[in-house]
């Protein structure tokens, strides 16, 4: 199969207006990926699926990623070919920001395998996929408001102090429970002031 650079050049020749760049993977896996601009993404996906040299008929994995440092949310598609038994070709789509411009084109019309996985990304990251046939929350309940897989999600403060804390648990315990009284100072009261324990 052609390399990611060759594939990018071929795609640029076929879709002259599109912005396509190669995201290099510096790790030993060397699975490089193609970063697409959202608007022609679905046409490119159809091309990748139907091109006789590629035949990427199988979308294996759809991953949402939150990049607060880049200021965007990202979806990664891992494509393989069942007909020609090669792969992966990795596509990345990025939103404009993390707050209001979080719309990306859905690739479910191209590969139905994306249906539940894109719903999951919508649920946990809040990326809105246009033309998805059934975009609802999939894992959390419908009334839920947050997107819990984002890096800045604050979970409900609802578990008690553990005797052997480590790292993040200790930080939560500090927020949650008062320090033990130092000798001579009045008792600060029971720990029932935490939100989880209110009736």
């Amino acid at each position: 199969m052609e390399t990611t650079d060759q594939l990018r050049d071929r795609l640029l020749a076929r879709f002259p207006g599109a912005e396509i760049s190669v995201v290099t993977n510096p790790g030993p896996a060397a699975q490089h990926s193609l970063l697409l601009s959202p608007s022609p993404a679905r046409d490119i996906a159809v091309f990748l699926r139907d091109d006789p040299a590629l035949r990427l008929d199988y979308c294996s994995n759809v991953t949402g990623i939150d990049w607060p440092t880049l200021g965007c949310l990202e979806v990664v598609y891992h494509l393989y070919s069942m007909a020609l038994k090669h792969g992966p070709v990795i596509l990345r789509l990025r939103t404009t920001n993390r707050t209001d411009a979080v719309t990306l084109p859905s690739l479910t019309p191209v590969w139905r395998a994306c249906e539940f996985q894109e719903r999951e990304v919508f649920d946990l990251y809040g990326i809105v996929f246009t033309e998805h046939p059934d975009l609802r929350r999939i894992l959390m309940w419908d009334e839920f408001k947050d997107h819990p897989m984002r890096k800045d999600y604050v979970e409900p403060d609802d578990y008690e102090w553990e005797p052997t804390p480590h790292g993040g648990v200790l930080e939560k315990a500090k927020r949650h429970y008062p320090a033990a009284p130092v000798a001579g100072v009045a008792d600060p009261g029971p720990a029932s002031a935490s939100p989880a324990t209110k009736p």
Binding site: P156, D158, E160, W161, A173, K174, Y177, P178, A179, A180, P181, P190, A191, S192, S194, P195, A196, T197, K198, P199
Partner: peptide, 18 residues
Amino acid sequence: EPPANSAVWQAPTMMRKE
């Protein structure tokens, strides 16, 4: 809502030791 039924469960009262 609520996160616990206070009639059957109370958070244990514990002090954090610095």
